[in-house]
Write a protein that binds this DNA or RNA. Structure first.
Lengths: 204, 204
DNA sequence: TCTACTTTTGACCATATGGTTAAATCATAT
DNA sequence: ATATGATTTAACCATATGGTCAAAAGTAGA
């Protein structure tokens, strides 16, 4: 068996595990269901990944990275802070749109097992750094009023991710169909930056 | 046994179940652990609540109500929209502060089992109604620029709840201790209304 | 005190579940 | 073709888990 096919099985497992773990969570997921979903024997799961826990770790690592905003690339480019912010939010909404359930899954698992984070803390710093620097640059030129990086970051991410976290609630409370929800997301690509930038550019 | 003591047992069970369910989730929770936590026999759980599912329903109903913002009271009072908004956000932050883990728990369980919502949809409408009416009133007098109720609602709730959903992430990424996190929350009681009101009051 | 009723418990059951193992199948190099 | 090593499977295993049951303990009225 050549490498392509070896990895084929592993890929099928990861794909299936991802699907099941994300929709049922670590505890709700069943090894048998993952095996069925992957179309293989349950023992094969243990052949490739020693235990449920190890398999889960693999999936969690993957999904955690996906959820982390890819801001570095954008903010290191040329261009105005405003344009970069708009692009970042728009991209982020598009990314998560392809995986509506990522935010709930990741936030839930993190809350149930915060130690998992230690592994990622270092990888979080650069992102936070870049954002803080860029923001500070604008503030110190007097273009924007002062706001701490945590507050700024929290507001942007909060407004961007919330629709996905609360999707069932929103669609049921506001009687939205799927198309309506999509339009709602599109509108937010404009609205979120508009809200934050209006605040930043208004004299206190 | 008089009523007070009868209900004592039931209360102990609900208290224990709440604690365990909220920290481990429906699937992660164990009936034995709930019994231990309540200091009673496991069979008693089934005597008072027929099954794990029934017990969970009881807890979920309770916690869901707690998470739902108590905006009705505030917005039906006299006073300016702005004051009511500020009061609402401040109260909401204080409420959830006493139960940091409520949002993750509720959002996660809803996502894993959205049918649970059907029971609550009706109870959601009045809140949504009141908020929409109050907001529309301000918009139509020209005081505020136009924004749809869903968008307004989403932004407020998003910014208010996000710190609780992402607490482990925020505290680790921004190296916050518990006191720092508390101060961060306090600051948001001012910041969130300020951001939204600045946006609403700025000409497009 | 005796009786009827509710509450509480220890022991138990059936099943689900993560994990193991030994054998079978497959691929490949000699 | 055959031996060697990797991959895959069916059958098992030990344990955890939700749930039941019959008996014990507690309560209260006659």
């Amino acid at each position: 068996m050549d490498n392509a096919i070896i990895h084929e099985t592993e890929r099928k497992i990861l794909e299936a595990a991802r699907k099941v773990f994300i929709s049922k969570g670590m505890h709700g997921a069943r090894m048998q269901e993952i095996a069925d979903e992957a179309g293989i024997n349950k023992a094969l799961l243990h052949y490739y990944f020693r235990s449920k826990d190890k398999l889960f770790q693999a999936i969690f690592r993957e999904t955690f990275q996906e959820l982390m905003p890819k801001a570095m690339g954008i903010f290191k480019e040329e261009g105005s802070f405003e344009d970069k912010l708009r692009l970042f939010i728009s991209n982020y909404i598009d990314t998560i749109s392809k995986n509506h359930f990522l935010p709930v899954f990741v936030f839930n698992e993190i809350n149930q097992n915060p130690e998992m984070l230690t592994e990622f803390v270092d990888r979080l710093k650069p992102l936070q750094q870049v954002l803080a620097t860029e923001l500070q640059k604008e503030i110190s030129t007097g273009k924007y009023r002062h706001i701490s990086p945590v507050q700024f970051f929290s507001n942007i991410i909060a407004m961007t991710l919330f629709p996905f976290l609360a999707k069932p609630l929103l669609t049921s409370a506001f009687a939205m169909g799927d198309e309506h929800f999509q339009a709602f997301l599109e509108e937010r690509k404009i609205l979120i930056p508009e809200i934050m930038l209006t605040y930043l550019k208004t004299e206190k």
